[in-house]
């Protein structure tokens, strides 16, 4: 029992260690304090920032990431099911999907700028474009890799094609769909933050990091980086918790 309790604290060791080394480095001034502020200064900036402008940036980035992931999911999940349910159909489109999945989404910024202008639409559209392909690929593979015995079992019990699709294939693909959603939301966040830095943005975490750096406000820059990290970690964790709740059979 005691060792169980002790194990729960293991993840804290890395955090404490990192902060300790960081404190030591800044206290001994091994690194220029302008480049690396102390943990206290950074967390003070994070704390005050979140109730002020950094909080607004944080919400903006959440909104853009959520919007692009949502759009991507709405497009990719039904399309992935359709493509996955016919292996020939998927094979005929596989190269196109893989090609654009391998294309850095950031390379699409100029094109999307022409299409959508410099507003939020461009950032959300590029992030959605990247996420669509990742989700689509996973959903299609989830459907294609549905256990043959399970499909056969449904068929032998007299299930129609539609029944097999909705009662078996869709549920079979859910664990893989969640893998796609987690990867998709991570990619969307990366694209959104980059877009906020360079595509004429007035707000968002990317803009905040970039602006703080331009103004040489290092505590604020680190605070924004930590906020972005927390957001990425939180989104991933949120999808994991949703998955554990609704796809209870995943990995079993």
């Amino acid at each position: 029992m005691r060792s169980r309790k002790a194990e729960a604290f293991l993840p804290a060791i890395g955090v404490v260690g990192l902060v300790a080394i960081w404190s030591l480095v800044t206290w001994r001034q091994w690194v220029d304090p302008v480049l690396l502020p102390s943990p206290v200064a950074t967390f003070d900036s994070l704390w005050h920032g979140l109730s002020g402008p950094l909080g607004v940036d944080f919400l903006k980035t959440i909104y853009r990431t959520a919007a692009s992931t949502l759009i991507a999911a709405i497009i990719a999940i039904p399309l992935g099911i359709v493509l996955g349910s016919s292996e020939q159909l998927y094979r005929s489109l596989e190269f196109v999907i893989d090609f654009f999945r391998s294309t850095p989404a950031s390379a699409m910024f100029p094109l999307f700028l022409v299409l959508f202008g410099v507003g939020d639409e461009t950032k959300i559209a590029v992030a959605a474009f990247g996420a669509v392909l990742v989700i689509l690929f996973n959903v299609a593979y989830g459907v294609m890799n549905a256990r043959k015995t399970r499909l056969l079992a449904a068929k032998v019990m007299g299930a129609s094609r539609w029944r097999v699709l909705f009662d078996v294939m869709l549920l079979e693909s859910l664990p893989q769909t969640f893998v796609g959603l987690r990867n998709g939301v991570s990619l969307a966040l990366v694209i959104i933050v980059v877009a906020e830095m360079f595509i004429g943005s007035q707000d968002g975490l990317g803009h905040s990091v970039f602006e703080a750096q331009q103004l040489f406000d290092m505590p604020r820059m680190y605070a924004a980086i930590f906020a972005a990290g927390a957001l990425g970690y939180g989104l991933n964790l949120m999808f994991l918790l949703i998955e554990r709740r609704f796809v209870h059979w995943s990995g079993k």
Partner: peptide, 11 residues
């Protein structure tokens, strides 16, 4: 089926 693990619906 022989393979009950894959024949039943885990959901």
């Amino acid at each position: 089926f022989q393979n009950y693990r894959e024949a039943l619906f885990p959901w």
